[in-house]
C-alpha cells in the first residue's frame, strides 16, 4: 500500500472516531434524558403524565422507524441550521446524533425498567422528591445498564457512520466503498473493515469492563 493510501486511511479513521465520539456523547446525554422522561412519565410512575408519555413515546418510535440514509437527506435543512453546512464530517454528525437519540432513549428506558419498583417505593417512603429519586436512585442503580446502552449505541454509530459518505462525511466506511468497492481494491476494503472491527472490539471491551466495575450485584 502506498503512503498516500495509508495517510488516507489514517485520516478516515480519525474522521470516524470524531463522528462517532461527538455524536455518541451528545446522543448519550440527550437520549438519557429522553429515556428518563419516558420512564418517569409512564402511567403509574413518579411523574406519571399520560399525554407527555404518549407524545414522547410516539416521537421516539417515529425516530426509530426512519431509515438512517433517508433521515440523513431528509433533515438537510436542519443540519444546515445547526452546523452551517449540509456536507462534510460535521454535517454527517447531525443525522447520526438525531438517529441515535431515540435509540439510546429506548435502551435507557429498558435499563431503568430493570430497577425493582420496591427501591423507588422505599425512596418515596423516606420522603424523596422526584428529582432525588432520579439522581440518587434511578441513575446510580441503572448505571450498569446505562453504560451497556451507550456501548451498544457507539457500536451502532460506528456502523452507521459508514453511510456518512453519502453527504461527503468521509470516514472509514466511505473509503471502503469508494476505494475498496468502486475501484475494486480488496486490500483497502480489508484494511478499513479490519480497523472497524478493532474499534468495535475496543469499545465493547471498554464498555464491559466499565459495567463490571459499576455493578455491585
Amino acid at each position: 500500500m502506498s503512503t498516500d493510501m495509508m495517510a488516507l486511511i489514517g485520516h478516515a479513521t480519525l474522521q470516524t472516531l470524531y463522528m462517532v465520539l461527538i455524536s455518541g456523547i451528545i446522543s448519550g446525554v440527550l437520549g438519557l434524558a429522553l429515556g428518563l422522561a419516558l420512564y418517569v412519565t409512564r402511567p403509574g410512575q413518579i411523574l406519571a403524565y399520560r399525554p407527555a408519555f404518549l407524545v414522547t413515546s410516539a416521537v421516539v418510535n417515529i425516530g426509530r422507524s426512519i431509515p438512517f440514509i433517508i433521515l440523513m437527506v431528509a433533515i438537510v435543512p436542519f443540519t444546515r441550521l445547526v452546523v452551517g453546512t449540509s456536507i462534510g464530517t460535521n454535517a454527517a454528525m447531525v443525522p447520526l446524533t438525531i438517529a441515535a437519540i431515540p435509540f439510546v432513549a429506548r435502551l435507557i428506558e429498558g435499563a431503568l425498567n430493570e430497577i425493582s419498583p420496591g427501591l423507588i417505593e422505599a425512596a418515596q417512603a423516606m420522603g424523596a422528591t422526584p428529582k432525588q429519586i432520579v439522581t440518587k436512585v434511578l441513575i446510580p442503580e441503572a448505571r450498569g445498564g446505562i453504560i451497556t446502552s451507550i456501548t451498544i449505541t457507539i457500536v451502532t454509530l460506528i456502523s452507521y457512520s459508514a453511510m456518512a459518505g453519502a453527504v461527503g462525511g468521509g470516514g472509514l466506511g466511505d473509503v471502503g466503498i469508494r476505494y475498496g468497492y468502486n475501484r475494486f481494491e480488496p486490500l483497502i476494503m480489508l484494511v478499513t473493515v479490519a480497523i472497524l472491527v478493532i474499534m468495535v472490539q475496543g469499545v465493547q471491551m471498554l464498555g464491559d469492563s466499565m459495567v463490571k466495575r459499576a455493578n455491585h450485584k
Partner: peptide
C-alpha cells in the same frame, strides 16, 4: 419503613 425484600440500593 422496612420491606419484605429489603429494597436496599445495590449501588
Amino acid at each position: 419503613m422496612i420491606f419484605q425484600h429489603f429494597n436496599l440500593l445495590d449501588s
